[in-house]
């Protein structure tokens, strides 16, 4: 009896980021994570899949033949890490991004607060204006945009959740799909005690709820409730967003995953 191979499938046709469909229909994906389940490995995987259509997880060596040409361009915007961090971790998956024309990294980590004054909302909108201009200049066709650590901007500046969303909208329009990763620890979104619109907790909570009403696809990374385990890092759950994705069906499922010491990831069916 043959059993289904344990592998990551986001859509029912066993694809992760469907190439052709993404061209015609916009995909908006939110990845939420908490302390202890950093999404770096998953982002790397999604970058690889967006670029080449392959996936370096649970696969045997030499089974996949990666073409040298990438299928769509990827722009990665990070508020929390620099290019070196992603370049080296992607290299571990065999993805060379140093000289890759299809991969562009926009570093909003290194000199963020030279460009942004926390109390000045104008400076934040200017940052996004520059960003849209940069993206327009970078790629001809609509790229897949990854955004990491946007919640940090929300917490550390006076920008409101609605303003942040409208800025995000600008990027949304330029892209073929947006993959947003966001930290959502309980402490960051606690509105039981902090329920005034100026409270950072309220801001982030509001932002996340509004985003959740606009996504097609949600992925959540959570640690095991029982705490640390040697063979399991946490759970990865895939669920549909509020806006249906019409081209393909999303395979709602929960996986267990393990990121081992050599930073390679493995998925298991639950």
């Amino acid at each position: 009896m043959s059993s289904q191979k344990q592998d990551l499938h986001i859509f029912t046709d066993n694809s992760i980021i469907p190439h052709n469909q993404v061209k015609s229909e916009h995909l908006f994906n939110l990845i939420t994570h908490v302390q202890g389940t950093s999404p770096t490995w998953l982002l790397n995987l999604l970058i690889e899949n967006s670029l080449y259509g392959t996936c370096s997880i649970n696969t045997d060596t030499n089974k996949q033949h990666r073409s040298n040409t990438s299928r769509s361009s990827v722009i990665f915007i990070s508020f929390l890490n620099d290019f070196k961090f992603y370049a080296s971790s992607l290299k571990k998956n065999g993805v060379e991004v140093q000289s890759n024309q299809s991969f562009k990294f926009i570093d909003l980590f290194t000199n963020l607060f030279d460009r942004v004054v926390p109390s000045n909302i104008e400076s934040v909108s200017k940052l996004f204006d520059d960003l849209t201009q940069e993206i327009k200049n970078l790629s001809q066709d609509k790229p897949i945009i990854f955004i990491e650590g946007l919640e940090f901007l929300l917490l550390s500046t006076d920008i409101s959740s609605i303003q942040c969303l409208s800025q995000l909208n600008k990027l949304h329009k330029l892209s073929s799909s947006v993959i947003l990763s966001c930290q959502s620890d309980e402490e960051l979104i606690d509105i039981a005690t902090f329920n005034h619109p100026t409270h950072p907790q309220y801001k982030l909570h509001d932002f996340l709820v509004r985003i959740l009403h606009r996504t097609n696809l949600n992925i959540a990374l959570r640690p095991l409730e029982t705490g640390k385990a040697k063979d399991i890092t946490g759970t990865l759950s895939i669920s549909k967003g509020c806006i249906p994705y019409e081209s393909l069906d999303i395979a709602e499922k929960e996986y267990l995953y393990l990121v081992s010491k050599d930073q390679s990831a493995k998925l298991f069916f639950r």
Partner: peptide, 12 residues
């Protein structure tokens, strides 16, 4: 390095 790469290392 380990936590940022995605390992769950919270030990209480």
């Amino acid at each position: 390095n380990q936590s940022d790469a995605g390992q769950m290392l919270i030990t209480k």
